[in-house]
Amino acid sequence: MSVSTSTSTVVEYTPDRRAQRGPGRVFQALSSPWGSLVPVVVLLALWQLGSVVGWIDKTFFPPPVDCFTALVNLITHGDLLVNIGITIQRVLFGFALGVVPAVVVGITMGLLPWARVVVDPIISILYPIPAVALLPLLLVIFGTGSTPIVVLAGIISFFPTAVNSMAGVLQNDRRLTQMARNLGSSRGQLLGKVVLPGALPSIFAGIRLSAGLALLGVIAGEFLAGSDGIGSLTWQYWQVYQITNMYATLAVIAAMGFTLTTVTLRIQRRYFNWTEGNS
């Protein structure tokens, strides 16, 4: 980019053709919503190939096509759908059981220093306990069946929402509360029009975490203590060494988690978009 003669040097900045061309067509295709499926399909294809040819052990990694056949089989001839329904119900109940009180407790803690001083130490002690460790206790209290699993999911999903709700209220924008007070806002108006709406994004971020944890809690509970539900099926197929069936149920669990993440992300983008680029 420089031309030199014996007397002077000229430095030229010229257009960067590569940068002007922008990202290539392949890159653009891969970053589209449907294009993002391509890497997943390629991975499955490689797995299929490796499993059939014998590069990887078929016993542990059966060909995806076989697993898919097993899935279809379980849906048409087995009771997979019933078990999916049971699991979804437990997730929803557990989620509601944890999140509803969590929002109330979290907001109360954010608003009342007294509640914070009393409840915060208790949460600090309970939060780090891996909630799955409580399952035996829950079995003692609630016996077998759905109840201990739902309660486990409720306990796990309580904490992120409670902590985030409290933080959302505590981090309210002081400039906005001062502005509202100057214009004659009552305490109730301050709460309803400034503090709580301002805390919603944080509360919802907690709810998103809780939703994922509710699913985790239910699956873990079903592994260990369930006689039905999708997690229980996975565990049973492992024990009787029906690996393709086990993979089929894993795929169902993965789909549940994926749906949960996608739906909650959509809600977040739709209703809380003002938090992005907020100044």
Binding site: L176, Q178, M179, N182, P197, T275
Partner: peptide, 10 residues
């Protein structure tokens, strides 16, 4: 009050 940082509700 007109605030330096405008204090508009986002």
């Amino acid at each position: 009050i007109v605030w330096q940082d405008h204090a508009l509700i986002p």
